[in-house]
Simulated assay, not measured.
Amino acid sequence: MLNGSAKGEGEIWGPLEAPGAEVIAAMARATVAALPAEFAGHAAEVAIRVEDFPPEEFMQELDLDDPFELSGLYEGVPLPEKSVMDQPQRPDTVWLFRRPILDEWVERGNVTLGDLVAHVTVHEFAHHFGWSDEQISEIDRWWE
């Protein structure tokens, strides 16, 4: 019975799998598409990447030991700091880390995966628009 061998059990549980990177990316793109018009144009210029875990270079830069501590990251130059004189090294990118997001979703148990992905996505795009973590936390009561 533990391996799903009971009649009908495999039909219910067998095909279930954790959402892959492409599902998380589709949720993030839908979130960006739903942004208000004043943000949508600038947001469309930002790449969205989904990886299972943050790359080691991010972990070192942020002085983190546990990759489950980081569910998303904005990499780039915030809009208020951009200059026409700057030569971009690479595109601004919002990174979403699938495994930490899935872990948080399971731990919370009170939000949908789509809502959590939307929250992380909007938080990282807020950094693109030049908001600090403190400014974001003032209006975003998600964590309370």
Rank of each mutant, 00 (worst) to 15 (best):
F129V: 03
G114R: 14
P100Q: 07
E81H: 13
Q89K: 14
V23E: 12
I48S: 02
R49D: 05
H42Q: 13
P55Q: 09
M59K: 02
E51Q: 14
L96E: 07
E9A: 15
E124H: 05
K7D: 15
A40V: 03
L96H: 05
D115F: 03
E144D: 12
D66L: 10
W142M: 09
A126K: 01
F125L: 08
H123L: 01
R99Y: 04
I139C: 07
E57K: 12
E69N: 12
F125G: 07
A33M: 00
T31C: 12
M1W: 11
E104L: 15
H119F: 09
P36K: 00
V111S: 07
H123M: 02
G14P: 06
V84G: 11
L113D: 05
R108M: 11
S132H: 03
R99V: 13
D140F: 03
D140M: 04
D66M: 06
A34F: 04
I139D: 03
L116G: 07
V106Y: 07
E124M: 03
G76E: 01
I24H: 04
K82L: 11
A37G: 04
D66Y: 08
A126E: 01
P36G: 06
D86I: 10
E69G: 08
V32E: 00
S83K: 15
A47I: 05
R90P: 06
F68I: 12
A21Y: 00
L16H: 10
V50H: 01
L70R: 00
V77G: 08
P80T: 08
E45N: 13
F39S: 01
N3A: 11
Y74S: 09
I48K: 02
G20D: 14
E38Q: 14
Y74K: 03
G20W: 02
F129S: 02
W13T: 14
D52S: 14
D63R: 15
K7Q: 15
E17P: 06
D103P: 01
S137W: 00
N3Q: 10
W131I: 04
W131T: 00
G4S: 09
N110A: 10
V111Q: 13
A37I: 11
P91W: 04
